[in-house]
Amino acid sequence: MTPFTLSEPQRHLEAQIRWQPVELAFWLATLLPFVFAPNYLVLASQIAITALFALSLDLILGYAGIVSLGHAAYFGFGSYTAGLIAKWGWGEPLTGLAAAAVAAGVLGYATSFIIARFRHLALIMITLGLGLLLAEAANSAGWLTGGADGLQGVRMWKLFGAFQFDLYGTTAYTYSLTILFLAFLLARRLINSPFGLALRGIRENAVRMPAIGAPSPAHIRKIYTIAAVMAGVAGGLLAQTTETVSLETLGFARSADVLVILILGGAGRLYGGLVGAIIYMVARDQFSGINPQYWYFWIGTLLIAVVLFLPNGVLGGLTRLMRLVRSAA
């Protein structure tokens, strides 16, 4: 009996599933701030939250081709859910986060029926419109959301009854990073599954996939709901670690920012959102520290430079560089 051998495509897929050394190095590096930059942990925690949000957008944009300008709807919905539960007297973080996930998931599932029917510009504008409608609704429901002043009275209990959310952000970063890592494991598994492959097929050719037995709309609804859950968790984390929720969590600017972050890092690469979040937020922090009035100029220049010199985002550029190095060696 001949031993079972892998065919070429299967080998390619296997290679993708295996953990690369550079991935391990990346995740180990996320622990460095604890040691080398303990005064930057608050920023680090917000980067981790933004990275999670960008990762959730990557699932739909990078893997299913859905460009959304209203993704903050789920982020904000999760944020308000987590914030309200804490405000109403249940400040336990993990259950609050679970509630945020469920709430955003339900909203995501409900809207996914609309999303799955449209493509291109109409899809972008419908996501934008739905996002803006939700933001307006939150503004109108001032009795619930606190309106423009933001939600007041969010008080979190200690994490596991032991770790207070402190001024230095140690707990916040540990908590956010752990959740980000878990979500990343889930996303990684998901996109390397047959379901993930089918999604990529839809992204490349939405008409052909049903013909080979992969129902496009059902798949799109599923991944959209998962992405909404993840965005809701990110929003919940922000509400819990900052103990504030504002209308701005639902706003257009947040949707646009996360899109920029993802494209900057490189869409469709899982790590794109993570790398994008690190670069964008660190750059913003540094530029706005040096030049609080005109930092937009520098961040704009950065974006233009990335597009001109690294057309597939920073990660795309890195991949190309690695290939060059390898072929030279």
């Binding site: 460009v67 899109l259 005109y294 974006l303 233009i304 597009v307």
Partner: peptide, 20 residues
């Protein structure tokens, strides 16, 4: 997406220049 990023970059720069 690359076009979006480029032109958003231009918006950022133009806003900063106008403010300046």
């Amino acid at each position: 997406l690359a076009q979006c990023l480029l032109t958003i970059g231009i918006v950022f720069v133009s806003v900063a220049v106008a403010a300046y």
